[in-house]
Design a protein around this nucleic acid. Structure first.
Lengths: 246, 246
DNA sequence: AATTTTATTGACGCTTCGTCAATCCCCGCC
DNA sequence: GGCGGGGATTGACGAAGCGTCAATAAAATT
């Protein structure tokens, strides 16, 4: 009575198919346009089977978010391994976030949806937990870099500022800015020409304000970013160049 | 056949009633719990009449967001009039945002919903435009403060950083952090004890990094914040003290 | 080949949004 | 007071989506 391995494999693969279709629908038609019936229609099996894999529409969305979180976590890990000072490594993580955002806007979108809405109710708990873990992992990666800098006496944190809090702030600035991007034309009217670059600068300025050495007056962090791109993300950069203009 | 003034007044007032009920539902039961039928049930007239005032559920939500934006704009205006240096006035605006966030979490929530989701499709255009205007107004208030500082030579912006962009960054940091608050217990596990205070410090550190005078080493901006609260928002502070613990 | 176990289906129940023909009510007029 | 008319109000209804489950098909076992 155990199902044959071939069948089992097919069932595994189906999950990917579903998520692929769902992601495209989310991109093209938004949250409300991504209906379970439409997904079922585009994969070649029925809604009932769909619900065998995912307990609810929100569960599908959460699975998408989880893929996203995993991708981002992978990007962060690669960046955090950059060979350089803690501040360079933190810069590398920022570059990774930027690249992730540019290459995978759909991923970023599904993350946002999961976090912004109260969709967390009808979700498989283990999936929810895994999403949280990814977030915690990314946070931990960055916090470890801060702690390295403190250990090396390149950064002296004020008493009220914990490493975790500093991470929270950098994270908030970046994700907040990316969330606010919306319509580029509207931004231009507000006098914001290049928000992504602005975020890079703002992070550096903030770290300068904290006195995290080497200060950006003493080190060319723009160069670090270029190095991170070419060393940690060579393939992704090639991909980025070929992408349609953002 | 022109409707009697009494009737007309009643109709006007109804709009407020609807929004009050809607806001409470949004707070208690979330976006999906706020159904048109429930709203109709709690006000004492029917769904049809409801749809005479608001074209769709999203339109109701947008009206809520508009109230919020107006409230925030008013807070910002009062703060921007604070009697002090440009940097003190910018600090005042930050304090106003903080107060707004603390006093009106529901308001903040409806704003977020409007901006985060693709709810903008089925909305009365004039309402949508008004929301945008409020946003632009707040942005303009802050940008004007930056420009004052530049004019007074208390701030020298790098060539690539426009006043509008600086506003965008401060805004992103603050709103991004507030959006990420979510569960305080979870934050504590990440080593974030007092996020709101952390945001205040981060803004100051960022401005220090830009060299906006007077630097926070030369001036006590915590004192400025206290002054702003007591001078610009005396009544709201009394209210805040009486509020249930956040 | 028969039987049991598992996988799949899509019609169905339920909820919600938004509409609209029928109804009500208020007002001036006879 | 009774009547007529026009805007205001209603709630039943159609459409669409989510999630279920009895019925059916497929696969595995004997």
């Amino acid at each position: 009575m155990p199902p044959s391995p071939a069948k089992a494999r097919e069932i595994e693969l189906r999950e990917e198919t579903i998520l692929g279709v769902a992601r495209q629908l989310l991109l093209d038609r938004g949250y409300f346009g991504m209906t379970m019936d439409r997904i079922a229609e585009q994969v070649d099996f029925s809604k009932g089977t769909l619900y065998g894999h995912f307990g609810s529409k929100e569960d599908v969305l959460c699975a998408l978010a989880l893929e996203s979180e995993r991708k981002r976590t992978e990007f962060f890990q690669r960046a955090a391994r950059f060979d350089g000072s803690p501040r360079e490594r933190m810069t590398a993580v920022g570059a990774a976030y930027e690249l992730y955002f540019r290459l995978h806007p759909t991923y970023f979108r599904s993350e946002q949806l999961i976090h912004s809405q109260e969709l967390l109710t009808k979700i498989a708990p283990e999936r929810q937990a895994e999403v949280m873990q990814c977030g915690a992992k990314c946070h931990g990666l960055m916090t470890a870099i801060v702690e390295d800098a403190v250990r090396l006496r390149q950064l002296a944190l004020p008493r009220t500022l914990t490493p975790g809090t500093l991470t929270f702030l950098l994270w908030s600035l970046t994700s907040g800015a990316y969330s606010n991007l919306g319509d580029p034309e509207h931004l231009r009217q507000l006098g914001v020409a290049n928000p992504v670059e602005a975020v890079r600068h703002a992070c550096q300025t903030f770290l300068d304000g904290l006195g995290w050495k080497a200060l950006s007056t003493q080190h060319d962090y723009a160069k670090t970013v270029r190095q991170v791109f070419s060393r940690c993300f060579p393939e992704e950069m090639a991909e980025a160049i070929l992408m349609p203009a953002a």
